[in-house]
Design a protein around this nucleic acid. Structure first.
Lengths: 205, 205
DNA sequence: CATTAGACATACCGACCAGTATGTATCTTT
DNA sequence: AAAGATACATACTGGTCGGTATGTCTAATG
């Protein structure tokens, strides 16, 4: 006892989660390649042996962060709120507003975790690229479904293609985050979001 | 003779430009941090001593790539074509079309050089961030001026704010590039661009 | 003609970093 | 109770990378 952590109160899964969380933070700050394992270990108090017991390589740790932590975050921040009832544009507007709130001034400078990884890793690692592609596909689908439902209900104009429009909305969203990130300005996010909102309103039937 | 390059035919400025070009390529591929000086030296055949004669550090080399190479590229690819005569939306559409052509299938997977650097470097280095901020400001202004001119001429609706709209257009543009980059699909760039085009057309008076 | 400055070339260094080898304590199974 | 298997801990290694110290060749300058 003493030399090793108490397995009764802190089991293997908690260690794994702690690593995932810390890795996420480091990656979000510095990107995947620049994220150091040493920083992740310091953050968690976990040793290198423990890390390599749970993950076979830094790459696998990165994949796990995407597959588990980031996917979960996308679920709670987007997919769940998106299932609210109401006019599709109102729902979308509300979700965007909530996300805008979520990214307060300090965090806005770190940008969207998914877009960060996409920009950095997709040209050099297909494992990252495919995982991100899947997330984007789900994301786009969730918007497209909302639009298509609106079209069936007559609350969204019929002249647009739901898939293409969803793609453009998603792209604009990421673009706005990108601009705000570089400007390190929450205000810029809001102003850019206004542009998106006026576009969205043009889709009402 | 022979040990050193002939200063008659290849002067210092050519060496500098070669370094800038090679550094740009490496950075565009792998990002600034992951770009290795060794690769830049191999590409150019220049030695480390020469590199450090022209640039005091890797960071300064990166700044120079932004200040000179990328700024120049933005000028020829955007600002110059933007000065064509015609209806603002037509001009914008034509420039976007040309840029879409420019990013052929292989290159689309590398994304927009400016956005790449913005995502990677702006949270961790203010020198990069400010330089990119300036480029984006110019870029946004060039679009805003076009829109404002259209408003004065009566070819663009009066109800929009030229600056905010330009910001959103720029954000959408970068967003589309981002999506296409991760999907590694020129087709996705085109489809996303269609969404942007239909938004732009809604701005006609 | 001597000196100096510019433009490189070569060799080397210390830091860092992902990954590994090995040891050890605890839990589970037989 | 013996024997794996699990979940770590510690120490170390090999390689890469940015940066530097120092030397050399050439062109211009006084």
């Amino acid at each position: 006892m003493g030399l090793y952590r108490n397995i009764m109160t802190s089991d293997a899964d908690e260690t794994r989660q702690a690593l995932l969380e810390a890795a996420y933070e480091e990656i979000h700050h510095y990107g995947f390649q620049a994220a150091g394992l040493s920083a992740i270990l310091e953050r968690t108090g976990v040793t290198k042996g423990a890390l390599y017991h749970h993950f076979s390589s830094k790459l696998r740790l990165g994949y796990a962060v995407l597959d588990e932590h980031i996917a979960h975050q996308l679920e709670t921040l987007w997919f769940t709120p998106m299932r609210q009832p109401g006019h599709p544009i109102d729902v979308l507007a509300e979700v965007i507003r909530q996300v805008g709130e979520h990214y307060r001034n300090e965090e806005i400078a770190l940008g969207c975790p998914i877009n960060n990884l996409a920009q950095e890793m997709s040209p050099i690692d297909d494992g990252f690229r495919r995982r991100i592609d899947n997330l984007y596909r789900q994301w786009q689908e969730s918007i497209a479904n909302l639009l298509a439902k609106g079209q069936r209900e007559g609350s969204i104009i019929d002249s647009i293609d739901a898939d293409d429009t969803a793609l453009f909305i998603l792209a604009s969203l990421e673009g706005c985050m990108s601009m705000a990130k570089n400007a390190q300005s929450h205000d810029k996010l809001m102003r850019c979001g206004q542009g998106l909102m006026s576009y969205l309103n043009s889709l009402r039937a």
